[in-house]
Design a protein around this nucleic acid. Structure first.
Lengths: 146, 146
DNA sequence: CGGATAAACTTGCTTGGTCAAACAATGTAG
DNA sequence: CTACATTGTTTGACCAAGCAAGTTTATCCG
């Protein structure tokens, strides 16, 4: 199947392009950026580490390390859960919020440049739909909620 | 742009699923596998390291190290270029060929399971076409051949 | 010719991430 | 109520890859 190689190559491309600018101009990994983004959208700007890990598809240890970095940079803080002493919440600090607001426009521009130029609305939509099936599929396999 | 996160997530999924089996059952990275595959298809089963690096989108040092591993495993050998002393060819050994033949069916099956189940012919084609534009775009940027 | 520039490749160091193991807190069965 | 399993998180060892710098060979241009 020749297709597979191409699919993977294309993704690598996308990720690299998108992360390059982010790293260069804001010192953030794509994953770090996405975590910030997820937190910003979450209620109370806080999320459990497990859920965060799941959403960015990182291993538990991966998330620990990523959050360590963000915490060291002051962009994220820890909060203990009262109901369950095992869980720690990561919550966006105001500094983190500010950072995100600085990154977002550039990131959106990069995405626009990469995608908007190449695809029209319909194509983009179908791309998202098609790829979406893959993610959905993966979720099923790990977490077969019927 | 919500789309971006999803696109990236989907790719991560695809790559991970595809590489997991490969690593578990054959002790090969997805990149290593692709290198083997490229070599198998190349004339004389040999390629320059630069070209290999370009095709799998790895940095020069990345390819060096990857080939080191494959060489240590006896799957690949070095050959000097007579015309240009700078270049080294990587060539598939018979062991490498055999290895590839053992991996390929499993890999094809995995791809089939991941893609074939989820997409029909037309969808797959359009997916490849759309994503292909991204790769093509990236090539242009590094290598603006008009 | 000879010297600069570029191409192919390697080496050292750093990094983001995984896995396996450990640990603590929570649920659940008997 | 005790014992066992599960869940959330962290830590240590390891690994694939990137970047920057260095070496060697080609090439181009005066």
């Amino acid at each position: 199947m020749v297709a597979v190689g191409r699919l993977i190559g294309a993704h690598a491309t996308l990720t690299r392009q998108l992360s390059a600018q982010l790293v260069a101009e804001h010192g953030l990994t794509l994953n770090e950026y996405e975590v910030l983004l997820l937190l910003a959208r979450a209620p109370e700007r806080a999320m459990r580490r497990v859920d965060l890990a799941h959403d960015v598809r990182l291993s538990p240890s991966g998330i620990t390390r990523l959050l360590d970095r963000l915490e060291a940079a002051g962009l994220v803080g820890k909060r203990q859960c009262e109901a369950d002493a095992r869980v720690t919440y990561a919550e966006l600090t105001t500094a983190g919020m500010a950072k995100l607001e600085r990154c977002a426009p550039d990131q959106a521009a990069a995405a626009e440049r990469l995608l908007g130029e190449r695809f029209d609305e319909a194509e983009l939509a179908s791309l998202v739909e098609l790829l979406g099936r893959l993610s959905a599929a993966a979720d099923d396999e790990c977490d077969p909620t019927p």
